[in-house]
Computed example of a mutant assay.
Amino acid sequence: MQWTLEVVIVPVSDLDASIAFYRDKVGFHLDHDTRNEHMHVAQLTPPGSGCSIVLGDLPSQRAMEPGSLKGVQLVVADAAAAHAELQSRGVSVSDITVFDDRDGGTFFGFDDPDGNAWAIQEIKARAERPLIPEGYTAPWA
């Protein structure tokens, strides 16, 4: 049996501000922003990822305090380029740290406006072997 992680709920205090941050500053694709008299839920996906984040005001999403999510990890093929891109978009990022010279040992991070903490890991092999092939379109998209 295969198990796939496809959604991570990110607890936030201001949905509209968080949508703008993840879409406009971090560069995630806004898959949907659903509002009605019962709820407001948005799903955003990092480019090249099979896993999305969900922001919302449903009971399961309110179970965590805004800013309480720590250590969610994104992977990029080039940490320096990702670092520079986020900085150019106005995201406050930590310094790049090399914990190990082998591929996978380079990291930096950022926090969203609520304090949810993200780690960015460089795995250079992703440039040649992405987990999701470029140009792939999900059957439901």
Rank of each mutant, 00 (worst) to 15 (best):
M39I: 05
P11K: 10
D78Q: 06
D57Y: 04
V7T: 10
I132A: 02
D14E: 13
V8Y: 05
R102M: 13
G105F: 02
D24V: 06
I120Q: 08
G90I: 07
L131N: 02
R89F: 08
A63D: 07
W118H: 09
I120A: 09
V72C: 08
V12C: 10
Q61A: 01
V8M: 10
A82Y: 12
F28C: 11
Q121T: 06
S52E: 05
L58M: 15
I53W: 10
D16Y: 02
D114C: 10
G109F: 12
W3V: 13
V93M: 07
H40Y: 10
A17S: 09
S18H: 05
D101K: 14
Y22K: 02
R89H: 15
V8E: 01
V76E: 03
V91P: 08
Q121V: 00
G27H: 14
E122A: 06
A81W: 09
V12L: 07
A77E: 14
D31T: 12
H83S: 14
D103V: 00
R129G: 00
S18P: 04
I123Y: 03
Q2N: 10
P113F: 13
G27D: 12
H83V: 00
V26G: 02
L58Y: 04
I9H: 05
A127W: 05
A63I: 09
Q87K: 15
K25N: 07
D114H: 06
G67F: 02
R23F: 13
W118D: 00
G109L: 13
H29E: 15
R129P: 00
D95W: 00
D31Q: 14
D57K: 11
M64W: 03
V91A: 10
D111T: 09
G71C: 11
A84H: 10
